[in-house]
């Protein structure tokens, strides 16, 4: 069992290494992708500087917390899209029958599939996340926490995407729904929860888990709270379990080609 896990991880890293090698074939493009993404994300800081010139706090969030939120959200996005890029394009893999290659390998189908490609600009998001964190202020415990939450948040993001893209096993237009949900997660995660009220706020801490993946970590880094920490970790684990159940349920309906969209 332990051996199997080790071998699986070896394959994942080899696969990421090879994808990275491919992207590095053109160094200018690689660098411009990363650097422009950092600049791109910096524009969010400008937006909040303007907003804070109107009002000096947003609920519990001062400028510093909002910037931490933006950094963490970028970091989470970067982690998810660098290591698990294919989970955001899973419908295409399913609909074009490209899952075949992973099914015949003696490895975990879902893991092999979603780690089979990387997004270079996601490195820019990770870098931006790091810069923002350093700007926020380094301390050893908060650094560890920041990157634990980058991982749990990233995994939640990946799980949501896999769950909705897996609906492609059942429905034709599932990719559109999944893209919408993914975009919503990203959009919402760069605004503090204090601007939302009532039912929406409740949704953000349940069905659309931006609250658990992004808001709770900011609260914990600002002042540590063991209960919130446990919630973050356990929700992440719960999502992983649900994701595997749904994906493997759908896999039974896999049709291995574009036969489904045959026209008459």
């Amino acid at each position: 069992m332990l051996m199997a896990v080790r071998n699986q991880i070896k394959v994942i890293f080899l696969s990421i290494k090879y994808a990275l090698m491919r992207e590095l074939l053109n160094k200018t493009t690689f660098l411009s992708n990363v650097i422009f993404m950092v600049l791109n994300n910096s524009s969010m800081i400008i937006q909040w500087l303007i907003l804070f010139s109107i009002r000096d706090n947003f609920g519990d969030y001062g400028l510093k917390q909002v910037i931490l939120l933006i950094g963490l959200s970028s970091s989470i996005y970067g982690f998810a899209h660098f290591f698990f890029e294919k989970s955001f394009k899973l419908s295409e893999t399913i609909n074009t029958g490209k899952l075949d290659a992973y099914i015949v390998q003696p490895k975990n189908i879902l893991l092999s599939t979603i780690t089979s490609d990387i997004q270079v600009s996601a490195l820019g998001d990770l870098l931006f996340g790091l810069i923002v964190y350093l700007f926020y202020g380094f301390s050893f415990p908060s650094f560890i926490l920041y990157y634990i939450f980058t991982m749990t948040g990233g995994l939640i993001l990946v799980c949501i995407s896999v769950i909705f893209h897996s609906l492609s096993f059942w429905f034709n237009n599932a990719d559109l729904g999944a893209d919408t949900i993914n975009n919503m997660m990203i959009n919402v995660s760069t605004y503090p929860d204090s601007i939302f009220k009532g039912a929406v706020k409740w949704l953000l801490f349940t069905i659309i888990p931006v609250g658990i993946a992004n808001y709770i970590p900011v609260k914990i880094i600002t002042s540590f709270n063991p209960y919130l920490f446990i919630i973050n970790i356990s929700v992440c684990l719960l999502f992983i379990v649900i994701t595997f159940i749904i994906f493997y349920k759908g896999l039974r309906r896999y049709s291995s080609s574009n036969l489904m969209s045959a026209r008459i």
């Binding site: 071998n7 394959v11 090879y18 491919r22 029958g97 490209k98 075949d100 290659a101 003696p106």
Partner: peptide, 21 residues
């Protein structure tokens, strides 16, 4: 349906499959 990485050499590809198995 191709299973090989197109930017890599056959040799590197074979090593990858070695790791998979």
């Amino acid at each position: 349906k191709e299973q090989l990485w197109t930017h890599l050499t056959p040799y590197d590809n074979f090593k990858f499959f070695g790791a998979i198995y």
